[in-house]
Design a protein around this nucleic acid. Sequence first.
DNA 1: CCAAAAGTGTTAGGAGTACACCCATGG
DNA 2: CCATGGGTGTACTCCTAACACTTTTGG
Lengths: 226, 226
Amino acid sequence: MTLRTDVQVTVDLVIFALRDGQLQVLLIQRGIPPFEGRWALPGGFIRSGESLEAAARRELAEETGVRDVYLEQLYTFGEPDRDPRGRVVTVAYYALLTGDATPLVAGADAGDARWTPARHHPRLAFDHQRILDYALERLANKLEYTTVGFQLLPGKFTLGQLQRVYEAVLGRALDKRNFRRKMALLKILKPLDEWVQDGPSRPAQLHKFSAKEFERLRDKGILFPF
Amino acid sequence: MTLRTDVQVTVDLVIFALRDGQLQVLLIQRGIPPFEGRWALPGGFIRSGESLEAAARRELAEETGVRDVYLEQLYTFGEPDRDPRGRVVTVAYYALLTGDATPLVAGADAGDARWTPARHHPRLAFDHQRILDYALERLANKLEYTTVGFQLLPGKFTLGQLQRVYEAVLGRALDKRNFRRKMALLKILKPLDEWVQDGPSRPAQLHKFSAKEFERLRDKGILFPF
DNA sequence: CCAAAAGTGTTAGGAGTACACCCATGG
DNA sequence: CCATGGGTGTACTCCTAACACTTTTGG
């Protein structure tokens, strides 16, 4: 056991998006050993002049082409045997893609990439199952005392869409009337003079997130993910 | 900017204890450059076979002699210029020392060590002020939805002591009757047939934390720090 | 008898939860 | 006319916050 170990530091990304009404996560199929053929979270080594968050944003842009999305450090995993190639400490981040930041996988450099349901997916390489579990737990917790939920939607959205975000992340159904009253009480939504329609039903009013209420809510202890 | 940077990984520790009725933190005066003479958080390099948490516990034992205390990973700081000696990524942890785990500094290997008030202390080396600020914020938040507060007290304590923990961490006064009612409602305290007395006043009944209630509270969403 | 901390209830307001029906539209 | 999601109000319970006086002890 040497005193100063040279360590590789990576960032791994749990990239969430709401697709087909369910919470999904971006996985990459490994083309080389170890765990060849297994699915894994996207990630990579940090570079010398680069902060951890910058590395995470670079990886995110490489995999999805998107920038300016919500990104938060999750946890750092450093068990000595977590990577058979050597000592690799990974700083995990999670990202939330909004509905309008077309989350299509462009030039993924690591074999095949695929969106899969966040709670139902193939076996993962390394300790990535643990990282994903942790991200799901954090996301659900944050939803209840911050406004991360909006980060999974486009700038304009209906109340039904917003409720489905909460239901997908929390994994349970919510009462429509109570949900809408709570949102109204927070006064963080601005109704717009636009209506949209999804299927064969009554058109729904579009809303947007009201940035003017940030301060007021922060004072009340409701934190913001910015 | 090379692709795979060799990085040193350290753990830094924010060690809290309640001393003289206030929240204090353990600092070490640096004996060598950089920041020679400045105060810093205790910490050190991880060793090759050692997990991050094991490294943190080892450092904690080296500085304080204590084991089996509450320890939680805080955040990982990795700005490329945070250490003038090179690329050092640090995984910060915070620890809570109970009142009876005599937090005397024994064989501190890095010059002088000292307890200082957590919110009023000398200028710190590196980015340690930021780490400490982050730890204070996390501790205050966790106090409100977990039972970390008990980790700062001995096994037997009075309700007054418990309230002073909360007040010291939250930085504000609490109403005695409301505080006691809330504790009674949670049913996590067991009154003992022992009374103690601090100054010239009525003796206070000792209580202990009731381990039997863990399950019940976890089911209700109140998390436990174990 | 004075100072100091322990101990003890009530009330009012706000938030959460449970619950059912009509509306606008497309097919 | 039917299926689909949009939109709306009330009653109950529980938690929170505000608020003051008596008790026990040491000096």
